[in-house]
Structures are given as structure tokens and as C-alpha cells.
Amino acid sequence: MSGKRVLIVDDEAPMRFLLGKQLTRAGFVTATAADGEAAQAALASESFDAIVLDVIMPGMDGFELCRRLKADERTAGIPVIFLSASCSGEFRRRAFSVGAADFLAKPFQTAELPAYLGAILRRSSDPTPADGRLTTSIGASQIAGAASFATRLAEIAALEGPAPVMLIDLELPAGSIGARLQLAGGPNMRVLLQDTGEPVNADQIARVAQRYHNAMEVIPAPFSPATINQGEPQPHRLEAVLDGLLKKGYHIIVHLGTGVNELTRIALHRSETVWLAATSDDHHEREALLEAILAAGVPQARVRAAVDGQIAEGQTVDSQTGNASGKMAGRGRNRSGRREQESSAGQLMPAI
């Protein structure tokens, strides 16, 4: 994204300096504004390709500034990425409601902001539809981290792949992804799978899906047994959900929980890659689950292992296909002792 112009709006001078340095290193051209009025003045006199916007500022806050920019035809088309020290789900939902392209919570990793900006600008310049595909993640035990692994796969695919991503939590009767991502309660995957007498359609899916990133939506499972709705999930409705999303070009990533059953078999059979998440102590459980997956008719060539949150030696995630090759490291520490994460593209992203 060399040469793309970005306006950084933040009331804290050290943060403006840090963000400007990060984006300049990534090839962006930056300008800064300390508040909403200064940002409006800059936008009136210069053209920008994107805006990085703090939420909490004196006077006009980021939400109000974004609302005004989206109401002005001269600035409505400029993508806005919100930054916030709060990871509140309410802040994220409010940001998208006023027209944000994305939302990042501080602290974030040094390569993350340039990567998300680049992804947004790349998609806006090349809206070519992608082919739909399906990837699944299943855990050998409750502590295997399959839900976290599926979430990370979805974030990588949304960041680096060409297709919009739909992360589905199929861990029924209650899952953990919705609570972990601080999504709103309400309609969920269990509701979508109930037999209402009406066929599944795009509007029903849209009412249940919640936006988490620019190209990533989530359909959560119920957060707890207390919120479970009546009615058994119907396998034919899961087929319809998957068909509808694949036809629209989504890369679907489904967290299946910890067992093979009538519902999870549907996703397993249609998955291009099945990620089996386990801990280093889950050897027997991992072998038993692999046998169950193979017994369900899934070719062994489609199954990949992720142990203790790390891809097994010799494997990596292709962000476009979800397939494995090469190597991807999990979280570790660099020489300075700071935590780092290697994405599927091999980028080390130490936290700032």
C-alpha cells in the first residue's frame, strides 16, 4: 500500500507519533490531527485514502466525528478504522453502527494496524468475488483450545484472504466464542437451526450474524445453557446455512466443539480442511477423535493437527484455502522478552 495517505486522529501526541511511525514504515504517507475539528479541517484541504480514529477525545468524540464524515458525500467513502483502549463489545458495535470499516482494541500488535488498513484498501480496490470454502476446527478435549484456534483462523483469513469470513460456533448446547469476543446476546446459531416451518434465507442469517472485523462476521452459539432456546437443531437447516454462505463467496470457519455427532458430521464432510486441536497431554483423546473423524468418512489427508495452540511441525495455514503446508509458530517470546505471534504469512507481530 505504498503511497496511500492516512489521517491519524488522536488527542495523545505519543500515540500519534507511534502510529505515524508504524504506518510510515509500512509505506503509508501520514498526517495527524489532535481532535475532531482539526481532522475536519485537514480533510477539507487534503485528500486521504483512510482515517485512523481514536474513540475517546475531548470535545467531539470519535463516534460523532465518524457519523459526520459518513453524512458528508465528500468524505463518506473514506474507510475509518477505530482504535480504542476499551475492548468493550458495545464500543465495537457502536463503531460499526456509525460507519466504521474496522475496530481495533489497544494494545495491538505492531504489524496489525498496517495489515488491517492494507486489507481494507485492497478489498475496496479489488471487489472481485471469491469462491466459497469451508474449514472446521474440533477439539480433543474441552481444554484443547479449539474455539480460540478457530477464532484465530478466522482473523487470519479475514486479514489476508480475498473472501469475507463467517465464523460459526457450532458447539451446542452452549459455546464460548460469543462471550470471548464480547458479542451481543440474543439470536444465535441454535435459533437459526430450529425448524420454524420457513426455509433458511439470507435475511435470517444476517439477523443472527454479528460483525467483528471489516471482513469477519460471527454466528455465535448460545452463551450459556440458561439462554438455550427450545427446539432441537435440524441438520437440514445447517446444510441450508452452509449452502447460502458458500454461494455468497464466504470462507466459512466452523468450530465444532469436542465431538462427532449428526450436526458436526455435515460440516466435517463438506470441509476442505479439518483442524484437530489438542493439548500435548491429549494423546489418547486425540487418537480417539481422529478415529471418529475418519469413521465419519473424512479422508485423512484433510485432517491437520494443532497441539497446544501451535500448528504441528511442517504445517502452516493458507489464508485463502485454510489448508496446511510449511510451518506456523504459536505465541512465544522474542529476544526482548515480548510476546509475539506469527501469522500465516510468516509475520512476527510483537505487542505494543
Rank of each mutant, 00 (worst) to 15 (best):
I352N: 07
P129W: 10
N323W: 07
E262G: 14
G3F: 02
S319D: 15
A38T: 05
R16L: 00
G145Y: 01
D282F: 09
S88G: 11
H251G: 14
G132H: 11
T30N: 01
N201L: 02
A240Y: 11
S344Q: 09
G231E: 06
A115V: 00
R190Q: 14
Q109K: 08
S124A: 13
Q315P: 00
L113E: 01
D169C: 12
P129Q: 10
A85F: 07
R302V: 00
A206G: 02
T135W: 07
A301H: 10
E160A: 14
A312D: 06
A26G: 00
E160R: 13
S124Q: 15
D243Q: 11
D11S: 02
P233V: 15
F96K: 00
A351G: 07
M166D: 04
P129V: 11
S141F: 05
P222D: 06
D35S: 06
L43A: 07
Q204D: 06
R133H: 12
A277N: 02
A215W: 06
L192C: 11
P225E: 12
I266Q: 13
G118L: 01
P127V: 04
E291H: 09
Q182E: 14
W275E: 01
S325G: 03
E217I: 12
P107G: 07
L245C: 10
D72L: 00
S84Y: 03
A76F: 04
I352W: 09
E287A: 13
S2D: 09
D54S: 02
D243Y: 11
A312H: 07
R92Y: 10
A306Y: 04
L238D: 10
P187Q: 00
S97D: 05
S280H: 05
L263R: 06
A85T: 08
L245Q: 11
H255D: 15
V6W: 02
G77S: 09
L289H: 09
A38V: 04
P173W: 10
A105T: 10
G322I: 04
